[in-house]
Each structure stands twice: as C-alpha cells, then as structure tokens.
Simulated assay, not measured.
Amino acid sequence: MSASSDRLPLIRLEALPAEVLVDLAAGRQPASLGRRCEEGALPPPEVAGRALRLLASGVAERWSLPYAMIDERGAIVGACGFKGAPCLGLVEIGYGVAPLRRGRGIAAAAVRLLLEEAVIRGGAHRVLARINPDNAASSRVADKLGFVRGEVALDDDGEPLAQWLWPPSTDFAHDGEAP
C-alpha cells in the first residue's frame, strides 16, 4: 500500500514478518529487517505479542500483522496496523511514528492507507482509534482525517483513552458511545 498527495508525504506500508515480531515481542532488535530503521519506529513488545497471538488464533494477516511505514528513501519511520479483524463492521487501528520523524504528515498518510485497506479492501464500515487525550499530535491526525472524538474511557491498564470514530456518526459524536 502506498499514498501520496500534495500535502502528505509518500509513504508505503509493508507488513512486518512474523520473525521480526518474534524478536520485537522478546524485546530484541530484529536482525532480519534488511533496511534502515529510525529509533522508536517499530512497534513495542506488547503490540508484536498481540499480533503473534492473533496470527496463532487464525486471524488473517491483514488484520494481525503490524505494518512498517516506509518513507521515500526506504527507511522504516513508524508502524501502524489493525488491532484485530472487524467485529460488526468496526475495526480498531493504532499507529506511531519515530520521534525524530513526527510532525511531517507521516502518521496521517499511513492512517489514510489503513482507512482504505479497512473499508475498500477489508469490508469494514467503521474505524476506531483510541487516543490518550494528552496526545495532541495523534488527536490532530484523527481530526485531520475526519474522525470524530467521542467519550474518554479507561482501558484495561487504567489509561484514559478518547474514542475517535471514522466515518463520523451523529450518535457517536453526541452521546459519546461507541457503536
């Protein structure tokens, strides 16, 4: 998958292979990447572990594997992906960009590709991004792409997360409940 527009950088997404995820889940730097990788661009161990569990349970790779964000020079500058297969037409996404590459439109370009993958090729009808209210940059990305912010709820670890839904739903925007 790749995206480019007048305002967004050229980014392409490549699924991270299972052997890379095994290293990441164990907290090791993968030796098998075969390309330059910006510091902080790869998914954290808990994301890699979740991906491996989803794969092991039979969830399709498109919904299980995190994607590396590849810039025009071929470097990995971030990662994004789905947090499982769609349920009742709703799929959740997550994304992150290497600290030194933030503020350049990379996350917006990658999320736009995820939206296309989810809705056009994946059959999802809605996309959810749960973002810490203190994460202004991620909130700006969601807002820029037409997500609407809903209620803030605590996740399983007690972290407050605002629910951002795309495409916007009047009910979601007014009563703060996810579909």
Results as ranks from 00 to 15, higher is better:
Lys83Gly: 07
Trp164Gln: 06
Gly78Lys: 00
Ser5Val: 08
Ser2Trp: 08
Leu128Cys: 14
Tyr67Glu: 06
Leu128Pro: 09
Gly89Phe: 07
Glu72Gly: 06
Val141His: 01
Pro86Gly: 06
Cys87Glu: 15
Arg50Ile: 02
Ile76Tyr: 05
Ala31Arg: 13
Arg12Ala: 14
Trp166Gly: 07
Thr170Lys: 10
Ser2Glu: 10
Gly158Glu: 05
Arg101His: 12
Ser169Arg: 11
Gly40Ser: 11
Ala137Trp: 10
Gln29Met: 12
Arg126Asn: 12
Val59Pro: 02
Arg104Gly: 00
Leu16Gly: 03
Asp171Ala: 15
Leu115His: 05
Leu52Gly: 01
Ala129Ile: 00
Glu92Arg: 01
Ala108Tyr: 01
Gly81Trp: 04
Val97Cys: 04
Lys83Ala: 14
Gly150Pro: 01
Ala110Lys: 00
Gly84Trp: 09
Val152Ile: 15
Gly27Thr: 09
Arg140Asn: 10
His174Leu: 11
Leu114Cys: 04
Val59Met: 08
Ala137Ile: 12
Leu42Gly: 08
Ala79Ile: 01
Ala153Ile: 13
Phe82His: 04
Val77Met: 02
Glu19Arg: 09
Ser57Cys: 11
Ala162Met: 10
Ala107Arg: 02
Ala48Met: 02
Leu113Met: 09
Pro167Met: 11
Pro43Glu: 13
Val47Tyr: 07
Pro168His: 05
Pro17His: 12
Leu90Cys: 05
